[in-house]
């Protein structure tokens, strides 16, 4: 999923200060799962903002709407009837959702309420960690299912480096060395020989090397 964290309240207060009526949006997808911008977080932020302004004697009118998905135009269209009365939009979706709302409603100021972080997985409740960097050329099949791009601090294709110690990374003693994990997994699979094969330099063009990316499935796009 795409993970995110709410921005500091002080930053959000400044974003909406010029306005009296705002639309506060949540998204039922990734940001709900990582507890950053789902229906519950929308409720908490609405309550927080109302109180923050109440302290200064200002009554902030907030309408809360959580869409099924904020990165799809079909769902964003549902906002049309509510947009007229809103002076500004504050969105708790990831950057994709914020941009989709901004694209559809050109005349409304749209502010992000979260910082979008990374594509990650849940380690356990309340802990998410980075697992995929979207490099566009997946190597998980040859690295034992552990990504050296997303999980090695140096994105090494032939690790580990000299900073790997006791299975941990020199960048942070709490951080697993991805190449230790890869070795352990290859060993468990009986594929130690694969480790001996040098991987060639990675072609970064399928990643961000050639600008913003687009996928076109002609059979679907027609």
């Amino acid at each position: 999923m795409i993970t995110a964290e709410r921005k500091p309240l002080s930053e959000l207060v400044e974003c909406v200060r010029p306005y009296g009526r705002i639309l506060l949006l949540g998204c039922n997808e990734c940001v709900t799962v990582c507890a950053a911008g789902g229906r519950k977080e929308v409720g908490l932020l609405a309550s927080s903002l109302k109180m923050a302004f109440s302290k200064d004697g200002k009554n902030l009118d907030i309408k809360e709407i959580t869409l099924e998905r904020q990165c799809d135009p079909e769902y964003v269209e549902e906002l049309a009837p509510h947009m007229g009365e809103a002076e500004a939009v504050l969105s708790m979706a990831c950057g994709c959702g914020v941009q989709e709302v901004a694209r559809r409603f050109m005349d409304k100021p749209v502010f992000p309420a979260v910082n979008t972080k990374f594509m990650g997985a849940s380690e356990r409740q309340g802990i998410w960690s980075e697992r995929c960097a979207g490099c566009g050329d997946c190597v998980l099949g040859i690295t034992g299912g552990i990504c050296p791009i997303a999980r090695c601090s140096k994105q090494l294709m032939n690790g580990p480096c000299g900073g790997s110690s006791g299975g941990k990374c020199e960048v942070d003693a709490e951080m697993d060395c991805a190449w230790q994990l890869i070795w352990d997994r290859l060993k468990a699979l009986g594929l130690e020989k694969r480790y001996e094969e040098n991987m060639p330099a990675k072609d970064w063009r399928p990643g961000r090397g050639a600008g913003p990316r687009k996928i076109i499935r002609e059979d679907l796009a027609r």
Partner: peptide, 9 residues
């Protein structure tokens, strides 16, 4: 958490 927040609000 929202119950507590609403009480204050």
């Amino acid at each position: 958490m929202l119950h507590i927040m609403k009480a204050f609000e």
